[in-house]
Write a protein that binds this DNA or RNA. Structure first.
Lengths: 167, 167
DNA sequence: GGACAAAGGTTGTGTACGCAAGGAACCATA
DNA sequence: TATGGTTCCTTGCGTACACAACCTTTGTCC
């Protein structure tokens, strides 16, 4: 019989590392839940749609290769195929063939899609301000950005896929 | 016709707030993806199952009311019902009636479930160390924890539901 | 005590996702 | 120019989730 199994388990489950990663996930999920509601109510966009439209809007020519967009959004290829299907039926996105690689497809913003995201962003910026920036001091905000950039670069180095036009 | 629509859109889409929240989400998602793979390979647990078992293990009596567990995991009541169904068929969790409120149910760890999570945690702690703690200095780690705690408390104040035994 | 509102869980239904398989195009090598 | 391997995207299938509807129990107000 081990001597103090309960105490061992407790110290194990209260480890600082667990706390830190828990805080990161709870912060991100809590924020995501708030954004989801605001976006849905204010613009009729899900956060998934918002992210796709935003990433397209920031890309040269307002378009990206399917594979690059999939990498940026952390969707699988099949998941993205269907997401773009839905956005296309709403008229917010349009597929276009890639002239230099006939396997490839672009997903590009339509005028309607660009309009939609440009309308949605200001309210979302306010939302970020209220829920994430406001509770922090300016110094804390700067620290958080610097630290998170380090973490992001470490765990997710390919998040800029498609930045350089390749077609 | 507006004067410089393209420039306006660019400054709008490059706003610092968008960058900051993007960094937070990309960090959390990148980390989650790494944990998902390690957990699955090392212990056969999904991160969903890991989180549920962990939260139960940390609770008094290794059990929680369904509603409290749902709040902690950010699942809806129906989502949690089915998650617990699956864990129960695996023998890791057991439901128990609440004597003081006949509507209520407890979800509690079985011996097998407790064993499983105690085996899984050490490897997961290493994983957090490698992917989140290691790239930061000790000072940065402390700053991050302090700042995230502020954010978490602001956006997700009910994340400790069920801490006080109420039954 | 009886009516009504609210809370705790479970079940029906639709949707979105990942995985595996498939077809088309590209590229290397011979 | 054939051929085998790889990449890009799409489709079939199973799974997990949210939402709404539901039933039971509790608490409240008269």
């Amino acid at each position: 019989m081990s001597v103090t199994p309960a105490t061992d388990a407790e110290t194990l489950l209260d480890d600082d590392r667990l706390t830190l990663s828990g805080l990161l996930f709870e912060s991100a999920q809590g924020l995501a839940a708030r954004f989801e509601h605001s976006l849905r109510d204010g613009t009729g966009l899900s956060s998934q749609w918002f992210e796709i439209l935003l990433r397209l809007a920031r890309s040269p020519g307002q378009r990206l290769r399917m594979a690059d967009l999939a990498a940026q959004t952390r969707l699988t290829a099949s998941g993205l195929t269907r997401a773009i299907d839905r956005l296309e039926t709403q008229g917010l996105v349009m597929r276009a063939a890639c002239p230099s690689d006939r396997r490839g497809m672009f997903a590009g913003l339509t005028a309607s899609g660009l309009n939609r995201i440009l309308i949605a962003v200001p309210a979302h910026l306010d939302d970020i301000g209220t829920n994430l920036v406001a509770p922090l001091t300016e110094r804390e905000r700067a620290q958080l950005e610097r630290i998170l950039r380090k973490v992001r670069d470490h765990v997710s180095p390919d998040s800029a896929a498609g930045s350089e036009p390749d077609c």
